[in-house]
């Protein structure tokens, strides 16, 4: 979805290596500094113009979980006592690598 600079769409699209597309709130992706800087209009990355981020290293299954985390974070970021999100054991290492790649570490 092309968006004009200054008049950005509220939503962005994340695309996995195997072509799965996830549309979610732009603000929910800001927990990842990597995606935030990609989408920053000042950054001049292609992603900031199209609102579309393609991750060649992340498979659909893993990206699905990451997107789920984005939503979980967005929903709960104002709260103090939050139940942990379940991470499927078999995908744990792959999600860990993706989280490291996207910089979803220190939230403070």
């Amino acid at each position: 979805m092309p968006a004009l600079n200054g008049n950005q769409s509220k939503y962005v699209t994340l695309v996995s290596s195997d072509g799965f597309e996830f549309v979610l709130l732009r603000e929910a992706t800001f927990v990842s500094p990597a995606i935030k800087s990609m989408l920053d209009p000042k950054s001049q990355f292609a992603e900031s113009k199209t609102g579309r981020c393609v991750f060649e290293e992340i498979s659909g299954m893993v990206l699905e979980k990451v997107v789920e985390y984005f939503q979980y974070w967005y929903k709960n970021k104002e709260r103090e006592d939050v139940p942990d999100m379940e991470i499927p054991v078999e995908l744990c290492l792959e999600i860990l690598t993706a989280a490291d790649y996207l910089g979803i570490d220190n939230l403070m």
Binding site: V31, V66, Y69, Y72, W73, N76, K77, R79, E80, V82, D84, M85, I87, V89, C92, L93, I95, L96, T97, A99, D100, L102, I104, D105, N106, L107
Partner: peptide, 24 residues
């Protein structure tokens, strides 16, 4: 508040460390 995704993964990994044979 919300734990970071990295923390969640590391905790899940520690809970199931016997299943891991390589950290990649």
């Amino acid at each position: 508040g919300v734990k970071s995704l990295l923390t969640l993964c590391v905790e899940t990994l520690a809970n199931n460390i016997d299943l891991a044979d390589d950290l990649g």
